[in-house]
C-alpha cells in the first residue's frame, strides 16, 4: 500500500529532524571531553540549543494536527531528549573546569535523566547509541565524582495528578513513562503525608543526596571534603541534641544536610550560553 501525501510529509519532516540531529550531535559530541577548550564547548551548547529550538517547533507542528499519529512527535521528542542530554554533559565539563562541583553533578544527573527519557519516548533512541552513551555517563559518575550518599523520602500520596490531562492518575487513561503525542506522562504528587527519610544506595533521583555534615569547626562538604563556614543560623545545630539521644552518645551523633527531593526541570536554563548573553557579559566586565 502506498503512502498518503500527508504521511509522506510527516515522514519527511521527521527525517529532516533526524538528519539535523545527526549532523549537530556528531559535530558537538567531539567536544564532550574534559581537555576540550571551553569556547568550543560553549559553541557546541549553542548549536545544540539551536537544534532543540528547531526540533521543538517541528514537534509542535506535529502535535497540532490530530490526523498525525502521535509516534511522529514521540520520535522528535526522543531526539530532543538526546540533544538535551549531550548539552547537559557539555555544561558539566565546563562546570568542572570552573570548579563548580555541585552544578557539575546536577548536570551529569540531568544528562542521565534525559538519556533515559529518550528511551521512554521512542525506540528511535536506539539509533542514537543511547545505551553506549548511558555507559559513558555511568563511567563519568564513578570515576570523576566521589561516591555519594543518597536519600529517599518515605511518602504516602493520597492523590497523584496526571501530567498530561491533569486528572486523577488512578482513573485517567495515561500510563507513566509512556510518551503521548510528544509528551511523556509523569505523576505529579498532590496531597502527601511525609513519613520518613531513608539512606539509599540507588535512588531514582540522584540529586537527592547528602550535601555534607556539620563538624566542630564548620560544615564538611561531601563533594570536596573541605570544611566550609557554617551558614548563618546553622552553627547552633551542632550543640543541640535531640531528647532521645543520651549524653554519652553525643559524640557519635552526626548532623547532616541533604536535599530530599528536587524539581525535575530546574536546570534547563541555558540562556547564559546564548551569543547575545555572552556579549552582554563581556560588556559588563569592560565597564
Amino acid at each position: 500500500m502506498s503512502e498518503s501525501p500527508e504521511d509522506a510529509l510527516v515522514h519527511s519532516l521527521v527525517e529532516e529532524v533526524v538528519d539535523s540531529y545527526h549532523e549537530t550531535v556528531t559535530d558537538t559530541e567531539r567536544f564532550a571531553f574534559l581537555p576540550r577548550g571551553i569556547e568550543y564547548q560553549r559553541e557546541a551548547i549553542r548549536s545544540l540549543s539551536d537544534f532543540i529550538d528547531y526540533a521543538e517547533e517541528i514537534k509542535r507542528d506535529l502535535q497540532i494536527d490530530e490526523e498525525i499519529p502521535g509516534r511522529a512527535a514521540n520520535q522528535v521528542l526522543a531526539l530532543i531528549c538526546m540533544a538535551k542530554a549531550v548539552r547537559h554533559e557539555l555544561r558539566m565539563w565546563i562546570r568542572l573546569k570552573e570548579e563548580n562541583w555541585e552544578s557539575a553533578w546536577t548536570d551529569l544527573v540531568d544528562a542521565q535523566e534525559y538519556a533515559s527519557s529518550a528511551i521512554a519516548a521512542d525506540s528511535i533512541a536506539r539509533y542514537c547509541n543511547v545505551k553506549t552513551y548511558q555507559e559513558k555517563l555511568g563511567s563519568i559518575e564513578s570515576s570523576i565524582f566521589p561516591p555519594q550518599q543518597f536519600v529517599s523520602p518515605g511518602l504516602i500520596v493520597n492523590t497523584y495528578e496526571c501530567s498530561i490531562c491533569g486528572e486523577d492518575y488512578d482513573t485517567c487513561p495515561h500510563l507513566q513513562g509512556i510518551a503521548y503525542n510528544g509528551v511523556i506522562c509523569s505523576r505529579i504528587l498532590r496531597d502527601i503525608e511525609a513519613r520518613e527519610v531513608s539512606f539509599v544506595d540507588d535512588p531514582r533521583d540522584k540529586k537527592a543526596r547528602v550535601r555534607g555534615h556539620h563538624v566542630e569547626d564548620g560544615f564538611r562538604n561531601q563533594m570536596t571534603w573541605e570544611i566550609e563556614e557554617d551558614t548563618e543560623g546553622s552553627e547552633h545545630l551542632v550543640d543541640e541534641t535531640p531528647d532521645h539521644v543520651d549524653d554519652d552518645e553525643v559524640e557519635d551523633f552526626l548532623r547532616i544536610e541533604a536535599a530530599v527531593m528536587t524539581a525535575d526541570d530546574g536546570g534547563d536554563d541555558f540562556s547564559e550560553f546564548r551569543e547575545d548573553s555572552e556579549d552582554q557579559s563581556e560588556q559588563n566586565q569592560e565597564m
Binding site: 529517599s152 504516602i156 500520596v157 493520597n158 497523584y160 500510563l175 504528587l189 535512588p203 533521583d205
Partner: peptide
C-alpha cells in the same frame, strides 16, 4: 490500567488508603 487497556478485563485491585510512593532506581 496497563492490563485493562491491553484487553485483560480480569483484574481487580483492592484499594489501600493512599499510595506508598517509591523513589528507588
Amino acid at each position: 490500567k496497563l492490563l485493562e487497556q491491553e484487553g485483560i478485563a480480569e483484574v481487580e485491585k483492592i484499594d489501600g488508603e493512599g499510595t506508598r510512593a517509591e523513589f528507588g532506581a
